[in-house]
Design a binder for these strands. Structure first.
Lengths: 387, 387
DNA sequence: ATAAATAAGTTTAGTAAACGAACTAATAGG
DNA sequence: CCTATTAGTTCGTTTACTAAACTTATTTAT
């Protein structure tokens, strides 16, 4: 049954248009809103009045006049009307962020995640911080509007189930249902890269970009694809596993069962292995990054090579999806920088459509907070999406 | 400036919902329409009356009653209210189809396309048939509602420009503008695979599938990607070139400048080369297909190998985009069959997300007409899309 | 100072589309 | 022929938007 239109639908639609305009373009005056939306001044006044009652929006003093005439009143979005919570469930840590409605971080909790056979036990400390965060947001008008959670693994976002998160050793965990019961709040769960992609597109380095590819590099490689301003979830909500894209059909076997996966050539582990090959020394990824920063040519080479392999995979995606932007997210700013450089070079060389529509390649804006901020953004997005 | 809502918008929206319901689910009675859309009987009656006046819809006799009570009146979509034209510009041929509004073929023109330095000259015979087709559709109530054209090459669909069609030797041809001037009708141009994808999704083997990948194999490999029921066009309208996806990073150099492109392993030319390798004999692709049909093991092997390579590329796409369906379109039904078989096998083996959400693999429904029917479907889609 | 000009925002009457309830129409079965 | 039932129409009500007139606030010219 399709959604048909009636008066309530119109009102909702227009309310939502005005609210979202203010969300990303505060402050504005009533007349400016009218001009930008095409609604009449009367309609805008009525909608703004309603939004003020709902606390989503505030009148804030007078804007500069246009020389002559009555001074307009500035209206702006009120980020403190409520709070959102974003959770990053990492391999051995968790991070709980409390954000205002403009996605600015207000509070920050962290802790270690011990893996345990029972999911409930593993999540216990996280849940305690989560409840603390909810309690401390109680003073705002709307309180916590929802909790978003980013997971490193396969997630069925529609049903809210973690299908398979190898690093957490979780399989078929109905996480949304569990947390819904514990908290009684709207819960959104999604893959870590999907979350990061949305966060960057709404508030970070991809602001306003309708078509982008977000690449998250950690133990594995995750991708979040946004096309036509929509996150691509696919038929069952498990899209985004371009880390397991074959770039060498006869390459080594991957843990996923496939061969020659991108992940084997460009993950942290691949860099570690490569560094061992080049220098004869075995070090953790963090140390190799430190050496790269210090100018160790083996470290630079190892990471640059990963970037070149990423470039090969991304050239395929660029040809197929024609994104305006490719965002690279690792835990380290300097790595992002070196990677974007070598990826750009490979794209220029290998992407068929590059001359017609070259994608910009950039580092992510939120660094290690990408996932948590993104998870919260998913909640904001669904909260503020129109009818 | 976002599209805001008012009375006219609602009317348009609801009209469009009813019309599209009838377009794909004729016949229905007024009461059934009301039930399925959630609109009231009164509103449905008013909308249907309007659609009847516009000739989009007809009252056709009485439907069987439900035992007792007044018999309902069946309403059905009227495919003969107008015509659409779909054009397939091939490498050395053109095909002009006249379709009714349900995408059934009504007339069929064909001719050869001699390549010429001047685009106008090359298109002359095609344009003559096109005008003939338009003239013969004049008797319908609405006449020709638009012309869709599928092009084997890079197309900026938004601007209506053929950026680069190597096989036609066209570069930066403003085709839409040219035809608009010649015909004075709405013109849609798009890549051949994008057209095929939409055609299959609306009327063919992908009916009702929201997420699918359409793969068109001819001289090259083209892909049309549909996600969330939308054709993926990318930032500049040139998405869909997954034929130039790298499956072997050290593979041979492709005409596109990249290396190890899928197209090198699975196009018609690749099959021809492979057959030469296996049998020592050089034959055209059509002949190899004939031999395959006759049971020649070399021919079967050559085509099966192409399928396996396609499977490798498609496994990557399946992991990244999670489509419900993968459609294979070649000129030959038997080839489609063998290819889908070997692709399926490879996907089962190599796709990471296969256990969670296996895509169906199938041959296209329209065979050699895919492109022209699809191009016409693009017009139908935009003609019938709501506000 | 005061008036004129101008811009911001509000009030009010009018319009259009959907809704809901009451109505008419048609049909089968007793 | 009457009753029950379903299909479809008519009509009064609701509601959100629009347009235009109006009020408010501010600057500039006299």
């Amino acid at each position: 049954m399709t959604i048909t239109g009636d008066q309530a639908y119109i009102k909702n639609l227009n309310r939502s248009i005005v609210l979202n305009l203010l969300r990303f373009h505060s402050p504005l005056t009533r007349v400016e809103i009218a001009r930008r939306t095409g609604l009449t001044k009367a309609t805008v006044s009525s909608i703004v009045d309603q939004l003020i009652k709902e606390a989503y929006v505030l009148e804030v003093g007078q804007a500069p006049s246009k020389g002559v005439g009555r001074k307009p009143v500035s209206i702006r979005f009120n980020p403190d009307a409520g709070r959102v919570i974003g959770v990053d469930l990492g391999v051995d840590y968790y991070r709980v962020l409390v954000l205002d409605l403009s996605a600015s971080v207000v509070q920050h909790y962290e802790g270690t995640l011990h893996d345990a056979s029972r999911v409930d036990e593993a999540m216990e400390p996280m849940l305690r911080d989560l409840k603390r965060a909810v309690a401390q947001s109680g003073s705002t008008r709307l309180g916590v509007i929802g909790v978003g959670i980013g997971i490193p693994g396969l997630v069925d976002a529609k049903r809210g189930v973690v299908l398979n998160a190898p690093n957490l050793r979780w399989r078929d965990v109905p996480l949304r249902a569990m947390l819904d019961e514990a908290l009684g709040l709207p819960i959104v769960i999604d893959n870590e890269a999907n979350a990061g992609a949305i966060g960057e597109q709404l508030y970070g380095a991809g602001k306003g970009v309708a078509n982008m590819v977000y690449l998250s590099l950690a133990r594995g490689i995750g991708t979040g694809i946004i096309l036509n301003n929509q996150l691509i979830r696919g038929e069952s909500g498990v899209a985004g596993e371009f880390g397991h894209m074959t770039i060498d059909l006869n390459g080594p076997t991957c843990s996923c069962g496939n061969r020659g996966c991108l992940e084997l050539y460009a993950s942290e582990k691949a860099v570690v292995n490569r560094y061992l090959e080049l220098s004869g020394e075995s070090h953790a990824f963090v140390d190799i990054v430190r050496r790269m920063d210090a100018g160790d040519p083996y470290a630079v080479d190892a990471i640059r090579l990963a970037g070149q392999h990423l470039g090969i995979g991304l050239a395929s995606l660029a040809n197929g999806l024609n994104p305006a932007l490719i965002l690279i997210s690792t835990r380290f700013q300097s790595v992002n920088h070196l990677l974007t450089e070598s990826i750009s070079a490979v794209l220029r060389e290998r992407s068929f459509i590059h001359p017609y529509s070259p994608p910009r390649v950039q580092g992510s804006a939120f660094g290690p907070l990408s996932c948590a901020i993104g998870a919260a953004s998913l909640v904001l997005q669904s909260h503020f999406s129109g009818p």
